[in-house]
Design a protein around this nucleic acid. Sequence first.
DNA 1: AGTCTGACTCAAGACGTT
DNA 2: TGCTCTTGAGTCAGACT
DNA 3: AATGTCC
Length: 411
Amino acid sequence: MGIKGLMKLLADNAPNGMKEQKFESYFGRKIAIDASMSIYQFLIVVGRSGTEMLTNEAGETTSHLVGMFSRTIRLLEAGIKPVYVFDGKPPDLKKQELAKRYSRREDATDDLAKATESGNKEDIEKFSKRTVKVTSQHNDDCKKLLRLMGVPAVEAPSEAEAQCAALCKAEKVYAVASEDMDSLTFGAPKFLRHLMDPSSKKIPVMEFDISKVLEGLELSMDQFIDLCILCGCDYCDSIRGIGPQTALKLVRQHGSMESILENINKERYQIPDDWPYEEARRLFKEPLVVTDDEQTELKWAAPDEEGLVNFLVKENGFNIDRVTKAIEKIKTAKNKSSQGRLESFFKPVSTSAPVKRKGTKCVLVSPSPVTKFKTLSLRSRPGVLGRLIFPSLELGSNYSVPLSRHFCFGI
DNA sequence: AGTCTGACTCAAGACGTT
DNA sequence: TGCTCTTGAGTCAGACT
DNA sequence: AATGTCC
């Protein structure tokens, strides 16, 4: 469920923390993506009609493979280097929420059975969507596909969104792409929405910058986390009568959850018994993630052509011509990507300068320092010789060029 | 009158061809 | 041990200020 | 821009 109403709250109260961007402006960028959510969407929408899905000869669903294959190619062709992050075990606090989803799915399964019996086509269509579930088989299939395509995958120990944010904080990726607003609560420095929307929809990519969001809200990160808990998150109930607006007012007024709880009218607002807001806060602030370089080293390798043909064509019934054409796309995309990246060093402004928007703000008078170098990534990584840091003209961001063979920059 | 919550609903891909 | 794992957006009624 | 197909 993410954070209830956070999107609208930010649009109204921190508009400077978000800006529209063109899809093309992410050329050469590494982007972290929550794999489970992508798979779920593919299962719901790709080739599904009623209870029919795309399948291989054995009758196993292949919708997730079709979707992930074409989307990943689309990203690579745009010069984007995706890394998919898979879910681990959900935290205990999320179990109530998951139980709700489980029972909803059971209800939908019953409804679907009834609809099937009476032959109501519309109901079959509606309820079959709600019974969709991502299994470990789907996840394993996609991990295998990505490995064969030469695209990295990361196993999160717990929440994928938290791991995505950690990769971004560690500057292993430029941004996290998701439709889930939790990414911001987990502290992802840069967060993209609508990255995957087709250009035909005319929805621009929306880029959020967490530091500017906090500036706009006039809150610290800790206060922002308390705000999100009050709005309503997956980890604990919200307080009846408090929505986004009141939550923001309360946090601004009192400064912290403790102070709010001391000062609000307990008659008017009933605090649930055993309300685990402290643990929820801890899950957002210090989530279980992997940070060591062994497990988060990201490599984009050449595709395994023979492996792809075996897996997709022989095992899953894909059309061989499509697959071989797709492999060619991957290879040429990688060549373009490695060339274009260097050229783009000298004109990064053209794609990201905020030319649009009421021209009240000028980049040149930005209060924040333009050169914000971070050299943390230099320390003790085996096999890395060094790393050049180039400032870009963009605010607060930089490019980094690894000198190690360990990193394949889009060969 | 206007603000806000909360319960409810829906919708969710990508490509080539016409 | 069993079992698991995605969401926002819009609308509207009704309670509150 | 709508439409059918992908497996």
